[in-house]
């Protein structure tokens, strides 16, 4: 690999407009451009309704932009099979949804044609700091933080290159928050997974490090390092 190739961003948004608000009736993003390097951890923050989640949902093609282009490994997102794309760019939604049954049954619920070994399940759980005894636990009875980590483990089973996390710690108490943050930073720093994290929590931004994009009214209004951004958010709060 040449140095030029190494600098090629893994994901690039160019002049992207569109995306839907939570109620799905208003387009929110206006000419958003940014790039993400492989192995980077990028945080996106901003007030509610600023388009953070809308942006995340464009990156795994839950929605398509009205204007502009998003490229993943040099090719436009539309060039990929959407189902394959969503395994490679995996979105973890804000509220972890568990299905009835055990943790094992939840992990084994895969798209048609995907089969997983027991050791793959144990490894995915280990990545998020849960041991194998969890496999037989009732998924509905896990704590909020455990559900969130299980939800991340479930996405890891698809072998993602980029993990998109939408407010991963917003509903958690402080202890659970720390465990989830440990999980996320481990995936980035030890496993080298590229992360894009939407959050409004200064503490999470501080712990994640890396660059932070501020969204306001659907536009990127500034970019900061994590420390400065976290301080700024704390002052605002």
């Amino acid at each position: 690999m040449t140095i030029e190739e190494a600098r090629e961003p893994i994901l690039a948004c160019r002049e992207v407009s569109g995306g839907y608000t939570v109620d799905a009736h208003r387009e929110v993003l206006k000419a958003v451009s940014f790039q993400v390097q492989a192995g980077e951890c990028l945080s996106i923050t901003g007030p509610s309704g600023s388009g953070k989640s809308a942006l995340l949902r464009l990156l795994n093609r839950f929605d398509d932009p009205v204007q502009g282009e998003i490229r993943f490994r040099k090719k436009p997102l539309q060039a990929y099979d959407p189902l394959e794309l969503r395994r490679r760019i995996a979105l973890v939604l804000q509220n972890p949804v568990m299905f009835h049954g055990t943790v094992r049954e939840n992990l084994l619920r895969r798209p048609a044609g995907e089969h997983l070994s027991e050791s793959a399940l144990i490894q995915a759980l280990a990545e998020v700091g849960l041991d194998r005894s969890f496999l037989d636990r009732n998924a509905m009875e896990l704590s909020g933080g455990e559900k969130q980590r299980l939800s991340i483990a479930r996405s890891l089973l698809g072998g993602p290159e980029i993990l998109l996390l939408d407010e991963p710690t917003s509903a958690l108490d402080s202890r659970s928050l720390h465990l989830v943050v440990d999980t996320i930073t481990h995936l980035n720093r030890v496993k080298g997974l590229t992360l894009i994290v939407v959050t409004h929590q200064a503490e999470l931004i501080h712990r994640l490090g890396g660059r932070v994009l501020f969204l306001e009214g659907g536009r990127i209004v500034r970019e900061e390092g994590a420390e400065k951004a976290a301080r700024f958010l704390e002052e605002v709060e």
């Binding site: 839950f62 189902l83 969503r86 395994r87 973890v92 939604l93 895969r110 798209p111 479930r154 996405s155």
Partner: peptide, 9 residues
């Protein structure tokens, strides 16, 4: 949406 995000059709 959880299932779609995992790559389900």
């Amino acid at each position: 949406e959880t299932l779609l995000a995992l790559g389900f059709s």
